[in-house]
Design a binder for these strands. Sequence first.
DNA 1: TTGTATGCGTTATCAG
DNA 2: CTGATAACGCATACAA
Lengths: 333, 333
Amino acid sequence: MATIYQVSELAGVSLATVSRVMNGNTRVSEAKRTKVLEAMKELNYRPNSIAQSLASNCTNSVGLLVSELYGPFFGEMMSGVEGELRAAGKHVIVAAGHSDEASEKDAIEFLISRKCDALILHVDAVSDQYLLELNQSGTPVVVINRSIPGLMENCICLNNQLGGYLATKTLLEMGHRKVAYVSGPMWKTDVRDRVAGHRRALQEFDCVVPDSLFIEGDFHEEGGVKAMLQLLQQPEPFTAVVCANDEMACGVMNCARDNNLDVPGDLSVMGFDNVIMSRYTFPHLTTIDFPSGEMGRMAANWVRQHIYQDSKKPVQNLFEPTVVMRDSVRGLA
Amino acid sequence: MATIYQVSELAGVSLATVSRVMNGNTRVSEAKRTKVLEAMKELNYRPNSIAQSLASNCTNSVGLLVSELYGPFFGEMMSGVEGELRAAGKHVIVAAGHSDEASEKDAIEFLISRKCDALILHVDAVSDQYLLELNQSGTPVVVINRSIPGLMENCICLNNQLGGYLATKTLLEMGHRKVAYVSGPMWKTDVRDRVAGHRRALQEFDCVVPDSLFIEGDFHEEGGVKAMLQLLQQPEPFTAVVCANDEMACGVMNCARDNNLDVPGDLSVMGFDNVIMSRYTFPHLTTIDFPSGEMGRMAANWVRQHIYQDSKKPVQNLFEPTVVMRDSVRGLA
DNA sequence: TTGTATGCGTTATCAG
DNA sequence: CTGATAACGCATACAA
């Protein structure tokens, strides 16, 4: 692999001049510049970004930590991040946190030791305090889908409360009153926000539903099935069930069908996230859109603004969810 | 951030000794070793992996190039790669190639300039020749789902031919004879392999189907819908359709339902890939399992063997697909 | 505008 | 076993 030194020799200039034409920040005479360029081409020179990083103390790479590398939700998000960063000539180093504290911290250490210029995190096991210290300690951090007091500027959030509200309100407006709720794990902040929105909508419509119609799920399809089974076994009737994510909504719909319940004829089902799959289910799932791709892009944009100063697109910290009407919900006569 | 120099000073040893206890390859007296370890702890020292990379000419990072960052298929694969590599203390740098030649090459250049120790590629736009030269030129390459003459040792493949064969054979054995086929883009090698398997099964059963029952799709859900529409408009009757991937199978099923065709009552549908979603569709999709996660893990294992020499698990170059029976296929009386 | 010299934080090659 | 010292490839004050 050719080095800057060999290029300088072939071009008959100093090593510093070569460096200058590469970075393009200092003025170089046109004559020497073309000479250097030619030499580069001839030697098929490629800058060693490792050396560049060491010398400039900038790695041009940002760490991306997500809970899982698979799943439609994270896929869209990663795609957004990578697309935006790649366009700026930056690298993304990914790691998975598996929603486990030790694993998340480990991954973050991993990324830091790699000297990432910034970290984009989607974590839920690690504490707010930890993230605050992390950001203070030298590695800028932007957090997705989590609001951290004292670090709001670095958070890219979805208004989960509003999402939960919209989901339930939609059903309520269509005449449903007996609406069951299958939530995610309540230790997650976004889950609690969605539930709060749900409760607000209920309250607004003077609607009280018994506790037995509230089930804490696990965000997985099987969890949806289990929740539905539980719902079916308790005495309270219900005409609709709103789920805290699309996977569980799938489980609920499948379970309903297995129990000879027609969706949406006998039961309306509402999802959350608007995962790609939700367009393919039968019936097509009515859900709340979570713009994960856009939010990933925005997180990357944040980094471009604050770290690389190469973007002038304003940062949007809060995203608003919207209702996506499809076929799994029906109005009550 | 503390450096090795400060540690050496605090420990009262030379800088070289510190380096030695870090790497643990040379013997160091127990006394000095503990002194160094203590100093490290006190200074909260973390090695600068950039400097390590420059000095050792080993970045401990491998580039991973996939077509897209989203989608269940790549998600599973990436997850396999990251899990295996992370366990070995290696980093993975990801990029998306978008099945476009310029984009794929660009991404590869990107990864190379980052001095990845090896590249794991899932590409389909770039030529065999290019990959051969790439591998020769200093950056070891392992290719997923593509067999390259002269580079077979570096390829982790699925037996697509067998997969295509199994898909169609399954239907044939159940009595179907009028089986339509919705393929992927024919310029992709794996697509052609699947088609070849399909043809082989047909031949084996002395079954000839008219050309109008063969549609070239695009691997997307909409493509499945369009293909099904096309199938419906031509005169030849058919009792089953095998699709080159699950997404298109979803489209076919949805379109069938929209046209009052019961699946599998009136029409059997076979998918390919066994994407997570296929378990959630209605009816649950019968398909061919593509062990993308395992193959990703194996690609990573290849790298560990050949580049880092820290794995003794044997490399498996060829994976066999299997039939996953679910509810979208039914035998003909 | 251009060249020289030094530093970035480690590894690795020597002597001792 | 240990300690100087020279790479590694590039960026960048400083000087010219």
